[in-house]
């Protein structure tokens, strides 16, 4: 029965919230058709009218500009302003070692992501388990999250300067100075480290909110059974917080890919030797400094696709991981 099939295909939307409870699907196909027969026109239109404001905002302010941007990326810059150039911008992008380096750095960020999630996760666990001084830690950890990246960058610029305090301390214990922000092999890790320091408070708060929903009796049971701390984390906390972890993973990834501009701008300006370029910095340089808005649009489109793919991959990977647990 084609009617029944098309109704079934709508199901996931409804099931989005209840997800693992398909047996609770409310109406059998027969009941639906009965109601549709009796449904008045006004009732049929109501959902569309209610959805209209949200849909219009998304279409006009999100999707339409996105389409314009993608469209713009197929036109030329400078003398070729406004003319169709096909895929020239994309070809130029992927021939540019600077942009390839920026994409490599995105890969590095993805690899460092577990660390960036583990830090707030672990610290939140300690706070939840009431280590001594946990109240103080809770506010101390969150504090950097309220600082603007420019201020954080300026502070660390001073701390990490070649003749700055960190190198002075290291020199005091006999370790030679490192040019933290001037060595292309080190600079990216330093900037990511500072970014994690500045933003992990947000993830921590989300984790603490997740802990609030955690069933305390499970923890008590684990304790009674004599589980060690690592065992408690592995078998009780992680499975219970899988949704939270998933959320923190995705938001941290998005934060890393789109909010590091301020830090990069202040701390390294993409250098040394272009080693700390990220796509967003590249986009800004091409658009603002090099006067190449169309090329910048192409880079934005690539960044958008990368984010889309990385985000979808993460969600599916995490879903699978959650199911296995």
């Amino acid at each position: 029965m084609p009617n029944g099939e098309s109704l079934t295909s709508v199901r996931p939307v409804e099931a989005g919230r209840t997800d693992r409870a398909p047996q609770r699907r409310p109406l059998p196909p027969g009941g639906a058709s009965r109601r549709r027969r009796g449904g008045r026109r006004r009732e049929r239109l109501a959902p569309y009218i209610l959805l209209a404001p949200a849909v219009l905002i998304i279409v006009l302010l999100r999707l339409w500009p996105l389409v314009l941007g993608v469209n713009f990326s197929f036109t030329g810059d400078g003398d070729r302003d406004g003319t169709v150039v096909g895929l020239d911008n994309y070809r130029e992008l992927f021939a540019d070692p600077l942009f390839r380096g920026a994409l490599r750095n995105v890969g590095l960020l993805v690899l460092l992501l577990p660390v960036a999630v583990a830090i707030p996760g672990l610290l939140a666990t300690f706070i939840y388990l009431r280590v001594p001084g946990h109240r103080l830690y809770r506010s101390a950890y969150f504090f950097p999250a309220v600082l603007s990246p420019v201020i954080v960058g300026a502070i660390f610029n001073l701390l990490l300067a070649f003749d700055g305090p960190l190198n002075a301390v290291l020199g005091g214990v006999g370790i030679g100075p490192t040019d933290w922000l001037g060595d292309p092999d080190v600079a990216m890790f330093v900037v990511v480290g500072v970014h994690v320091w500045a933003t992990f408070g947000m993830g921590l708060v989300v984790f603490l909110a997740g802990f609030a929903t955690l069933d305390a009796s499970l923890l008590d049971a684990a304790r009674v059974d004599g589980a060690s701390l690592p065992q408690t984390i592995r078998h009780v906390i992680v499975p219970s917080l899988s949704r939270t972890i998933q959320f923190v993973f995705v938001t941290t990834m998005i934060g890393m890919l789109t909010s590091m501009f301020g830090l990069l701008y202040v701390m390294t300006s993409g250098g040394p030797e272009g080693s700390t370029y990220l796509p967003e910095y590249y986009i800004w340089i091409q658009q603002g400094q090099m006067n190449r808005p169309a090329l910048a649009s192409a880079a934005s489109t690539v960044l958008f696709l990368v984010m889309l793919v990385v985000g979808l991959l993460q969600i599916s990977l995490l879903r699978r991981a959650v199911r296995e647990v």
Partner: peptide
């Protein structure tokens, strides 16, 4: 269902690539 959703998107991108228009100059 999935195919129906994907094809318009593919066509739209192709149309943009072929007919990319508009420019920075007003």
């Amino acid at each position: 269902m999935k195919q129906r959703a994907v094809w318009p998107a593919v066509l739209a991108v192709a149309a943009l690539a072929l007919g990319g228009c508009g420019s920075a100059s007003g």
